[in-house]
Design a protein around this nucleic acid. Sequence first.
DNA 1: GGGGAACCGGACCGACCCGTCCGCTTCAGG
DNA 2: CCTGAAGCGGACGGGTCGGTCCGGTTCCCC
Lengths: 185, 185
Amino acid sequence: MGSPETTALRADAQRNLDRILAAAADAFAELGPDVSIDEIARRAGVGHGTVFRRFPTKDALRAAVLRRRLDELLERSRALLAEPDAGAAFEELIWVAAESCRRDRFLFEGVETCAELEVTEGKQELHETVDRLIRRARRAGAVRAGLDARDVGALVGAAIQAAAHAERDEDWRRYVQVVLVGLRP
Amino acid sequence: MGSPETTALRADAQRNLDRILAAAADAFAELGPDVSIDEIARRAGVGHGTVFRRFPTKDALRAAVLRRRLDELLERSRALLAEPDAGAAFEELIWVAAESCRRDRFLFEGVETCAELEVTEGKQELHETVDRLIRRARRAGAVRAGLDARDVGALVGAAIQAAAHAERDEDWRRYVQVVLVGLRP
DNA sequence: GGGGAACCGGACCGACCCGTCCGCTTCAGG
DNA sequence: CCTGAAGCGGACGGGTCGGTCCGGTTCCCC
């Protein structure tokens, strides 16, 4: 299987591509969605022309990075559907999402902002799975009514964002906790 | 009293200054803290040289706008200290802060980011008053322990930020409600 | 190992933007 | 009204950044 829809890259090109994606993920997470391509290229150890050959535009690179993150979240969310305790699964989902936003506090903003098909598709898939988790938790009486995946994502992303300027580094746990309590029936 | 520490402006200059501050407040609220000075000058109907004569730097302009907002909040917070019901005063504070962030969803971010003395001073004064409101509410059993003005500001600002990309326009009320519930003991 | 394609990277272009500067305009007091 | 000072605004400089391009290099396959 796999998806050799494009001819395989040359070995050096593939290596550079991997380094670009890794560097871009780091740079976006650390410096925000407005990092210059030059900075990313510098971190990846390539010329910025190389970046533009793989990704025709800066937004395309952002989309590729975001999609990877969304796919990770999707996989973990699907795994949580197998968890028998719906309430615990939901709580775990919150913490997983929080950890993810924690690693890249621009993740939520990026996903909401980016209009590339690649990202909106990933967001859609994730929303469907998360909605299932939420409905399950609501039926189990663990979550209040009237919330969907968008709400939960926004609130968790916001809690992390709130902690970005906090004094102590572990404040984000308290903030997520506040949201978690507020989400109960 | 008053503060004629600088010679009074000429009538036309004062009028332009007012228009610049109003246009800047709008532009920052609408387009974020990175709007160009050109855009602000255009909205104010002046050349951008005029903006730079009043405010030596873009940050100075941002600081002036932010300070005005902080002063409004400070005044309303002080008024709430006179409210006999500590719990109700606290809840009202939350909604006032939310409304303020709602009008300018970059307010919180701007206040946290801006390093101008003008702003840090205003923030300090506001924090003192809000801390008083929080302590009072906690003694009345309306708020959980371990929260200070910074936490509350961050959480409310975040909830509004979260609602920025929401589908329905009134979602922000639900989000603030979630935070409010999460803040109780 | 040799040839050709794939690939690289930095020079380059245009757009944007902050902040300065100066010739011209407008105000206000006498 | 007249004059000088205050104010105006657009041209300009310096810098950054996204995106293009091409001469030279590296890899892969035969």
